[in-house]
C-alpha cells in the first residue's frame, strides 16, 4: 500500500454536550461537629459579644445550632472578666456594658463547660488576640458615583497611616446602625502600598443604592469606622470571603479550610482590635449627585 492515498469522508454526529450539567448525589460523610466561635473585643466601651454555634452537615439548610450553657471568660493578662449568656439571642454571650479593650494588651477567650462532640466529657477551648492600636481619622467625605448603571457612594478617607505594619477592616454605619454587616461588605486592607503615608481621600468603602439599607437620604449621618486588626484576622477574612463569594471555579485553587485562631479543632475567630470613627452628614449636593429625584 505504499504511495497510496486515502480520502476519508466522515459523517459524525458528535453529540457534543458541552457544559451539560445535571444534579447528582454526592455522598459525603457527616464531618464531626466542631465548635464555631465569632467573638470581638474592641476599644469601645460596650457589651462585647461572643457567639457560639456548631458546624452542621454541608447539605443541612438550617440556621447553625447555637451552643448554650457555656462558661466564657476573657483574660487580658491582668484580670479575668466573665461573660453572661443572653436570654434572647441563642448562643450569644455578653461582657458587662462597661467593658473595653486597651491597645497593646493580649486578650484570651476561654470557653468551658461544653461538650461539643457529645462524648460526655467537658471540653475547653481558647484563643488569643493582640489588640493593635489604630490611628485616628481626620475626616471623611461622601462622593456619589454612577457607573455602569450602578449607583451609590464611595467613602473617601483622610488619615495618616502609621509607620508600623497595619491591617485594617473598614465598616460603615448609617444613623448609628452598621450597614456593612456581612462578610461580603466588610473590606480588609493591608498597608503594603501606602505604609506611613497620608491617605488623601482614598475610597475605602462603598454604599450601593441597590441595597435598601445603604440608600442615603439628606440628613443621614454616615459614620466610617476603621479597625486595626491582627494580621491573622486579615487573612482569615480574605480566606472566608474567597469561600463565600460567588464561585469562580476556574483558578480558585485547591479548596481548603479557612484558618482559625481557636484551638482544639474549634473554628472561627476571636479578635481584638482598636477602632476609630469619623462621621459626615449627607447634604443635598451629595445625595444622588445633587440631582433631585
Amino acid at each position: 500500500m505504499k504511495n497510496s492515498k486515502t480520502i476519508a469522508i466522515i459523517f459524525t454526529l458528535m453529540i457534543f454536550l458541552w457544559n451539560c450539567t445535571e444534579r447528582i448525589e454526592v455522598e459525603v460523610d457527616s464531618s464531626f461537629t466542631r465548635l464555631v466561635v465569632e467573638g470581638y473585643v474592641t476599644t469601645d466601651t460596650a457589651a462585647h459579644w461572643v457567639r457560639l454555634s456548631t458546624t452542621s452537615d454541608y447539605f443541612y439548610n438550617q440556621p447553625a445550632p447555637a451552643v448554650r450553657g457555656a462558661t466564657l471568660s476573657i483574660d487580658d493578662g491582668d484580670e479575668i472578666h466573665m461573660l453572661t449568656e443572653s436570654d434572647t439571642l441563642p448562643g450569644v454571650y455578653f461582657t458587662s456594658p462597661g467593658y473595653y479593650g486597651i491597645p497593646g494588651k493580649t486578650y484570651t477567650l476561654n470557653i468551658r463547660n461544653i461538650d461539643i462532640d457529645g462524648d460526655g466529657e467537658i471540653e475547653e477551648y481558647s484563643a488569643s488576640s493582640v489588640l493593635n492600636p489604630v490611628n485616628p481619622i481626620d475626616s471623611i467625605t461622601l462622593r456619589y458615583f454612577n457607573a455602569f448603571h450602578y449607583t451609590g457612594y464611595e467613602i473617601q478617607v483622610y488619615a495618616w497611616d502609621s509607620p508600623r505594619k497595619d491591617w485594617y477592616a473598614f465598616k460603615v454605619h448609617k444613623n448609628g446602625k452598621l450597614i456593612t454587616d456581612t462578610l461580603y461588605e466588610l473590606i480588609v486592607q493591608n498597608d503594603d502600598f501606602f505604609n506611613g503615608n497620608y491617605t488623601y481621600g482614598i475610597a475605602s468603602q462603598f454604599l450601593s443604592n441597590d441595597k435598601p439599607d445603604e440608600v442615603v437620604k439628606i440628613g443621614d449621618t454616615i459614620t466610617f469606622e476603621i479597625n486595626g486588626i491582627p494580621e491573622e484576622y486579615y487573612y482569615y477574612i480574605i480566606e472566608a470571603q474567597s469561600q463565600i463569594f460567588p464561585q469562580t471555579p476556574l483558578f480558585s485553587g485547591p479548596p481548603a479550610n479557612i484558618r482559625t485562631n481557636m484551638n482544639n479543632d474549634a473554628i472561627g475567630f476571636f479578635v481584638a482590635y482598636a477602632l476609630n470613627r469619623s462621621s459626615t452628614i449627607a447634604t443635598a449636593d451629595v445625595v444622588d449627585g445633587g440631582i433631585p429625584q
Partner: peptide, 27 residues
C-alpha cells in the same frame, strides 16, 4: 478531590468546612 463536608456561620454568611486534601473521589 476535596469536598465540603460541613458548614458554619460567620458574620451572617455560610462558609464550608472541607475534608482533608483529596479525601474524596470523583465518580
Amino acid at each position: 478531590v476535596t469536598f465540603p463536608t460541613g458548614r458554619f456561620e460567620y458574620m451572617g454568611n455560610i462558609a464550608p468546612v472541607y475534608s482533608n486534601r483529596n479525601a474524596y473521589r470523583m465518580p
